[in-house]
Design a protein around this nucleic acid. Structure first.
Lengths: 208, 208
DNA sequence: CTAACTATGTTATTGTTGCTAACATATGTT
DNA sequence: AACATATGTTAGCAACAATAACATAGTTAG
């Protein structure tokens, strides 16, 4: 009875529809891919009419933009956490950041693609870029420590970019099933570690 | 009059609808992105009814699969041509292959994404992989020459994979506008050249 | 306390799309 | 010339994104 009452109280106004739609969108995106994902499905999953989302999001793109933003934020947090498990400013801590990157891609490939696809988030791309920059900052700071630079100097950005490039490429190859076509088993950790060592310039303070 | 007659002759049966649809699809894909691309638009562009394409392609995915296959083929050809402009089996010829890769991505970003997205080409993915393997072979053979290996040995595939990873990552970063967010101008040629030098193991026959 | 306001939900509707079915017309084979 | 096949058309369906008009809940002012 009490339950029914609560249910009825929450029957019309939903409580946290925005949050539930975001969560539903994330799940559906990963489950069925960007083409298989529909607003209608998200509504069904949230138990709400197909017009409801438009009180919270301008359109489909807008909803997916939020999913992407959330993904970028979680990626940054994971990178930071991974780095913190090693001595800071070392090849290992930098590699750990790369590992977080690739792991995220493998765990949520469709979200990952969305996070980096310029397409369709027209208008509010700058928001996405902002979150992206923040997450990229985790790598930049780590490389700065490694190089003994006091700040994010151009030396730091120049050294970081090839590393980003490498893990970005590895991520895409991984989620597109190209790690199984190579006639040898690709060890992700080893790949990142070796590439980091080779691509990084020697550190000022040589703490390997 | 003769023209009218010809026109009438070609009014119903189209001549090369399949080819024109592929070409229209490629253009529309690049112009409006994968979401903006519709069968209907392709039909309008080819001057044909919306049911016509289904005599030539099972569905939209199937059409796009062919676009992707064509892209992979052209990529392979371009890689080969770029390599042929340098001494074979050198860092320069290998870098030139990478340059062809990134150039293709920049020139046809949406086709490029399609070429490597496992999504949606369900069923006939293996065809795509086959063409992909053929194009990848261009790099493998070049690295084999560089290493002085007589064949595509595991040494060759192990050495090639990081190179692929790097240019693949660079391509995606480029088409997603990440080369302008780096606080320094990224020189693509230089990036590829340096990365190739650093990632490649030393050659048996040291012809730099 | 209640009236007005705002936020957030609903149903009904529209235009577009991918695709199929039923039908029409060319082309090629015998 | 008759038939089979390939390739086009029109008509129509169901799914979808989005909007409009309406309904209800929560919030605030008097």
């Amino acid at each position: 009875m009490a339950e029914t009452k609560i249910k009825k109280k929450r029957a019309y106004h939903h409580g946290d529809l925005r949050g539930q739609l975001l969560s539903a969108a994330g799940n559906l995106l990963e489950e069925h891919g960007p083409d298989g994902f529909s607003m209608s499905d998200a509504c069904r999953l949230a138990g709400v009419s197909t017009a409801a989302p438009y009180r919270h999001f301008a359109n489909k793109q807008d909803l997916l933009l939020e999913v992407a933003k959330d993904g970028l934020q979680r990626l940054g947090a994971q990178m930071e956490e991974n780095a913190s498990k090693h001595d800071r400013g070392t090849v290992r801590s930098i590699s750990a950041i790369g590992r977080a990157y690739v792991d995220f891609a493998i765990r949520e490939p469709h979200t990952f693609r969305l996070m980096f696809s310029t397409r369709s988030h027209s208008g509010r791309i700058e928001e996405l870029r902002e979150v992206g920059r923040a997450s990229y900052g985790v790598l930049l700071r780590e490389v700065a420590r490694y190089l003994g630079e006091p700040d994010i100097t151009e030396t730091v950005t120049r050294a970081s970019f090839p590393l980003w490039t490498q893990v970005h490429g590895l991520s895409f190859l991984a989620i597109d099933g190209k790690l199984e076509v190579t006639s040898f088993p690709v060890d992700i950790d080893e790949s990142i570690l070796i590439a980091t060592e080779r691509l990084l310039p020697p550190a000022a303070t040589a703490k390997a």
